[in-house]
Design a protein around this nucleic acid. Structure first.
Length: 636
RNA sequence: GCCGACGUAGCUCAGCGGUAGAGCAGCGGUUUCGUAAACCGCAGGUCGCGGGUUCAAUUCCCGCCGUCGGCUCCA
């Protein structure tokens, strides 16, 4: 065998992964949970017999890869505990997931939050017993019959769904002989699961299909070390503190009300932020050759029939009547932009024609999926459509990728993941058109050296797309921008241009958004920054605070000068003590607190305090104005 | 849409079969103060909406609306 570090070991016939570990050391052997053979990502059980010369990565319980094994074992232990508490529970599936594990169960009793500590206590018993996880291969047909006899319909269904030649294995542990259909692997004994937490319960359809029965999904998480668990729980708590719904209210940015479900009201401060973001995009549009347009809100349904939305997007649209005509509120701007394109006879000299639109869009999202600003029914995108000649696709997408990177870097979203989504089941257009479009995007990504993952079947109904996903300050993923290549709408709306050789040609349409929806982007930005926006974005950039009433005249002068310079400044001339004013300004996440007391009045200066807790010292008005204008310019 | 939890003052929350309470915010007053909360007082509620049970419902039951956690990351 060859080990990860290149070392070689000779072992007798029939040796297992565990034997290999034991040949290195007993401590390693007891910590081993399995191994990866010949670089295959799936982790194999430690009892796997090694055949011939192979490369083995030994996976120990305390390794990164071992974490998913640990969590999977924790889910078995949790299932064991649940059966101990409610013997009639029927088990479905219990995998390890990104941040923990879950188990789906079918049970009459509704698990409540109060039950979670009981489940944890029961799990502790199983763990204290420190019993071995045993693996056995079973006869599938016999086990399906046995499962059916027990009423274990989910396990029976799972086994029936396995490949005909697949080896069917069970894992057992504990005095109660808990057993579960499982591919494995597992840690060696239940005692190896030390740090875990049962977190919450939620509904989940069997196999994710709403036509199936709703099961109860119990979520938990497990880690190797207490510190890791604590860190994870601390991160969750921090995410709660930064929740944009909470901060949005506290900072007076927006409000939500049942009179308009899933539709935010932006308050004056939120609107300043909103408009500042739009202004930034407009600056970029000027640089990148876009022309902004304003298009209607409500269209006759004939438009949506023509575009394909009526057939493929109807469930997400709001309908209304104008006189006797059936109309729909736009969920996207693209069909409207085809009219702007078609308003003139177009020549190849007009291309690429880049159209931008901050139009308000409405989508009838299911009530259960809406959330704060991140999933709303009324929003606007930094939307744009590029009408281009086919040979311009590469250069347009190259420019877009640069633009996307520039915008994300500005906000500190420095890690970017890219997905290429291909043709979905619901779609319009011929196979040939889709192949061309998918190849076009793929080539553009490759030409730009962008690494990407393919997301089969996740494209828009009119074309394939590139999606951009960023990681925020808490390492959470958010999908923001998208670039979609569309040969179908130009066809549907019979768009064309005169080419240089005098022939009529069909342009291609590139749909693109960088921030995505402004609403969603603001929500993400609130959580990313914890409400402490950079100076150029902050709704209130500075606050002038007096120490006592006698300082008001100079404070007013400072305020007026800043206001005249375009700084978003507010005053606090209340009779509160200085400490209280500082505290208020801090809680409001105001970037600069400008304190004016007796000394400052005398010298015509300002004591400048920058969030968080940076004393910028005392300076005169000209120096302060220069500082602010530099921050505004650099967007630092 | 489906499953579960929740909905009490502007906000955060307590209470609970006998028609409501705190802190913060607000308002009035006192204080004029140097970098994370001065003090006193006042006001503020159809207890989400509708129905039912009851002598009596914010409290128990049902329906609706809304919010929150989830609804393949597949043995």
């Amino acid at each position: 065998m060859t080990l990860r570090d290149g070392a070689r070991k000779e072992l007798p016939q029939g040796a297992t992964i565990r034997d290999l570990a034991a040949s290195i050391g007993e401590r390693l052997a007891s910590a081993t949970v399995g191994g990866r053979i010949d670089g295959i990502t799936e982790i194999r059980d430690l009892r796997t017999v090694l055949r011939g010369d192979c490369r083995v990565d030994i996976i120990t319980a305390d390794s990164e890869a071992g974490l998913e094994v640990l969590r999977h074992s924790a889910s078995h232990i949790m299932a064991d505990a649940i059966l101990a508490l409610w013997p009639s529970a029927k088990l479905a599936i219990g995998p390890s997931i990104a941040d923990g594990f879950y188990y789906d169960i079918d049970l009459e009793h509704r698990i409540t939050p109060e039950d979670l500590p009981r489940i944890e206590a029961e799990m502790q018993k199983v763990i204290a017993a420190d019993s071995a996880f045993e693996r056995c291969t079973v006869d599938r047909d016999a086990e399906v019959l046995r499962a059916r006899a027990r009423g274990d319909i989910y396990k029976a269904e799972l086994m029936e769904g396995l490949a005909a030649d697949a080896e069917v294995t069970f894992y057992r542990h504990g005095a109660g002989r808990f057993e579960d259909l499982c591919r494995g692997p597992h840690v060696q004994t239940t005692g190896q699961v030390k740090c875990f937490r049962v977190q919450r319960v939620a509904g989940a359809y069997w196999r994710g299909d709403e036509k199936n029965r709703m099961l109860q999904r119990i979520y938990g998480t497990a880690f190797h070390a207490k510190k890791d668990l604590d860190d994870h729980l601390a991160r969750l708590a921090e995410a709660q503190r930064r929740d944009h719904r909470k901060l949005g209210r506290e900072l007076g940015l927006f409000l939500m009300d049942p009179v308009a479900p899933a539709s935010p009201f932006f308050l004056p401060k939120g609107t300043l932020l909103y408009n500042r973001l739009q202004q930034h995009m407009r600056e970029l549009y000027r640089e990148h050759g876009y022309q902004e347009v304003i298009t209607p809100q409500i269209f006759d349904v004939s438009l949506w029939h023509k575009s394909g939305h009526y057939v493929h997007y109807k469930d997400n649209m709001f309908f209304t009547h104008v006189d006797e005509r059936e109309c729909a509120v736009k969920p996207m701007n693209c069909p409207a932009h085809t009219y702007i394109y078609a308003a003139d006879k177009r020549s190849y000299r007009d291309l690429p024609l880049r159209i931008a639109d901050f139009g308000r869009l409405h989508r009838a999202e299911l009530s259960g999926v809406t959330s704060g600003l991140t999933r709303v029914r009324s929003f606007c995108q930094d939307d744009g459509h590029i009408f281009a000649a086919p040979e311009q696709i590469q250069s347009e997408i190259t420019a877009l990728i640069a633009m996307v990177r520039g915008v994300y870097n500005l906000f500190g979203f420095n890690t970017l993941k890219v997905f290429l989504s291909t043709r979905p089941k619901e779609s319009v257009g011929s196979d040939a058109i889709w192949e061309r479009a998918e190849a076009g995007l793929r080539e553009a990504l490759n030409a730009n050296g962008v690494e990407f993952t393919v997301n089969p079947g996740d494209g828009a109904f009119y074309g394939p797309k590139i999606d951009f996903i960023v990681l925020d300050a808490l390492k959470r993923e958010w999908q923001l921008g998208t670039i979609q290549l569309d040969f179908n709408l130009p066809e549907a709306f019979d768009l064309n241009y005169d080419a240089s050789d005098g022939t009529q040609q069909r342009p291609v349409m590139i749909h693109r958004a960088i921030m995505g929806s402004l609403e969603r982007f603001i929500g993400i930005l609130i959580e990313h920054t914890g409400g402490a926006f950079p100076f150029w974005l902050a709704p209130e950039q500075a606050r002038v605070c007096t120490i006592s009433d006698s300082h008001e005249p100079w404070a007013r002068e400072v305020n007026a000068a800043l206001q005249a310079a375009g700084v978003r400044v507010a005053t606090d001339f209340s009779n509160a003590k200085t400490g209280a004013k500082i505290r208020d300004a801090r809680l409001a996440r105001v970037p600069f607190t400008l304190v004016v007391g007796g000394r400052e009045c005398e010298d015509r200066t300002i004591a400048v305090r920058e969030r968080p807790d940076v004393d910028r010292g005392v300076m005169g008005l000209p120096a302060l104005l220069a500082l602010f204008s530099e921050l505004e310019r650099s967007k630092a």
